[in-house]
Each structure stands twice: as C-alpha cells, then as structure tokens.
Computed example of a mutant assay.
Amino acid sequence: MMIKTETQIRYEGMEALVKQLGMIDAERFISLLSRERFDYTEWQRHLWEQDTMETMYQRAVARWNAHKREESAG
C-alpha cells in the first residue's frame, strides 16, 4: 500500500466533498470548519456510538463489495 502525500489527501478530500455536496456547499463546509473550533477526536468518539460492531462490519463489507464492483466495471 502506497502512503499518500498531504497534497494527494487534500485533493482527494476536496474531490469527495465536491462530488457529495457540490462545489458551493463543499466550500461552505470547509469554511465552517475553519471558523469553528472542531475537535476531530471528540467528534470521532461519538460518530458511531449508536452502532454495534456488527452493523459497522456489515457497512464496511457492503462498501468494500461496492468498491470492488466499481473497480471491475471501470
């Protein structure tokens, strides 16, 4: 597995935001993060607290399978 550079991560992150939110809302999202104090570690602690390990596992498997299907189709 190749380790990505910070530039690659920024590019792919912005690309994902634009794909999901559109350009304007992606920029608004970044602006919100810049303005507010955002504790990623604290946010991460609570992100999936309602999920069980089984539901997280099933979601991961589904995403993996979808990714593999896209890879083989493209």
Rank of each mutant, 00 (worst) to 15 (best):
M2T: 14
E27V: 03
Q44P: 02
E36V: 08
R59G: 06
V18M: 05
I3P: 09
L33Q: 07
M23Q: 04
K4G: 06
A26K: 03
M14Q: 05
E70V: 06
E42V: 05
G74H: 04
Q20C: 00
L17P: 04
Q50S: 15
M14A: 00
D25F: 03
L33W: 00
A62G: 02
I24L: 07
G22Y: 02
M14G: 01
R69S: 09
A16H: 03
M2G: 10
E27F: 05
L32V: 04
S72P: 00
E70N: 14
A66T: 11
E27G: 02
G74R: 10
A60W: 03
R69M: 06
E70K: 13
A73E: 11
E42Q: 15
R59P: 01
Y57D: 09
M53G: 07
E6L: 11
K19S: 12
Q8A: 14
H67G: 04
A73Y: 02
V61H: 03
L47A: 13
E42K: 14
R63W: 05
Q58L: 13
G74V: 01
D25Q: 12
Q50G: 14
K68H: 11
M56I: 13
W43V: 15
Y57G: 04
W43Y: 12
V18R: 12
G13A: 06
V61I: 09
H67N: 03
Y40M: 15
R10K: 12
Q50V: 08
G74P: 01
E71C: 04
M53D: 11
L21T: 01
W64I: 07
L17T: 02
M56L: 15
I30P: 00
T52Q: 03
Y11T: 08
I3V: 09
T55M: 15
F29W: 07
T5S: 15
A73D: 02
A62C: 00
S34R: 10
L32G: 02
R59S: 14
E27A: 01
A73G: 05
R28M: 08
L21Y: 07
I24C: 00
W48K: 08
A66M: 09
I24E: 08
I24V: 07
I3W: 06
Q8G: 00
E71R: 05
S72A: 07
W43K: 10
E49Y: 10
K19W: 02
E27N: 11
E42L: 13
K4T: 05
K19T: 04
S72R: 15
A62K: 09
I30M: 14
Q20A: 13
E42T: 10
D51N: 13
G13F: 12
K4H: 08
I9W: 06
S72I: 08
Y40K: 14
T41G: 00
R63S: 11
I30Q: 10
L47S: 13
E70M: 13
R28T: 06
D25I: 02
A66R: 09
E6R: 08
S34G: 11
I3L: 11
L17Q: 03
A26G: 02
R45E: 14
L33I: 03
D51Y: 13
M14S: 02
I9G: 00
K19N: 12
Y57E: 10
M53S: 10
A16L: 05
A16F: 11
I30T: 00
W64A: 08
D51E: 15
E70P: 01
A66D: 13
E6H: 06
L47M: 14
F38R: 08
E71M: 09
Y11F: 12
R35I: 09
E27T: 03
Y11H: 09
N65M: 07
A62P: 00
E6T: 12
